[in-house]
């Protein structure tokens, strides 16, 4: 070994030893931070949230009569998660690509691109199906009725899609269209602060309200 090689080797050993020393310090720092931001922080936040905003912190669960609950055994779902509604008496949710549909254990979209032949086919099919169900022309079917949401759990539909479904739901439930339309208005939200997001209608809340009004009218 020449002298310069020896010097390089020593330098390399020194760097190696030094990295080990820094890594050991790093390990202590990591453990301390894990306790602080990985255990204390989320647990303290959970405690505070449960205390201050318990219902929301637990997932905005609702009972069949629309009242809030924190008990999953009493709940019919979350006001924030869409459900599958199939019969003619229900307002339908948007198509869902979450698992086999509306599965919160498998949230997500189709991830198909704008030129995907598969997506073109499914949009065309859905458009024909929705048009037939609602008895309208295919060109009157709004976009959100034929496209899957990003989460597959989108709890809302557009005001246009809600309006499209009013006559069918009213007929199936034997309610005047005005009554149904009023309920839609009750469960609609505009843009937050006038500019944030898009206008929308809450499907689960609307369907719960329909069930309740039907019960009231039926006695």
């Amino acid at each position: 070994m020449t002298q310069s090689q020896a010097v390089t080797a020593t330098a390399r050993r020194a760097t190696g030893a030094s990295l080990t020393r820094h890594a050991l310090t790093g390990l202590r720092v990591l453990l301390a931070f894990t306790l602080l931001v990985g255990v204390a922080y989320p647990l303290a936040m959970t405690g505070a949230s449960q205390l201050l905003f318990g219902w929301r912190a637990d997932g905005s669960l609702v009972r069949a009569d629309g009242s809030p609950t924190r008990d999953r055994s009493e709940a019919v779902g979350s006001a924030l998660l869409s459900q599958s509604f199939e019969g003619p008496e229900w307002f339908r949710s948007r198509p869902s690509a979450a698992g086999d549909g509306f599965d919160p254990l498998s949230s997500g979209g189709t991830n198909l691109g704008p030129e995907s032949p598969e997506l073109v086919g499914s949009v065309r099919e859905l458009r024909a199906e929705v048009a037939a169900t609602e008895g309208v022309d295919v060109f009157d079917v709004p976009a959100d009725a034929v496209t899957s949401s990003a989460s597959g759990l989108d709890p809302h539909i557009s005001p246009a899609y809600a309006e499209l479904q009013v006559p069918r739901v009213a007929r199936a439930r034997g309610l005047p269209e005005e009554v149904v339309r009023e309920l839609v208005a009750d469960h609609s939200a505009g843009r937050s602060l006038g500019v944030l997001g898009d206008p929308r209608v809450d499907v689960l809340g609307l369907n719960i309200a329909l069930d309740r009004s039907g019960r009231t009218i039926g006695g």
Partner: peptide, 22 residues
């Protein structure tokens, strides 16, 4: 694009509460 034109808006993979702009 083909799908947004067919559907009427670029809503595939978007949430109603956010819409295209948000």
């Amino acid at each position: 694009g083909t799908v947004p034109q067919l559907a009427g808006a670029a809503m595939e993979g978007k949430e109603t509460r956010f819409g295209p702009a948000t």
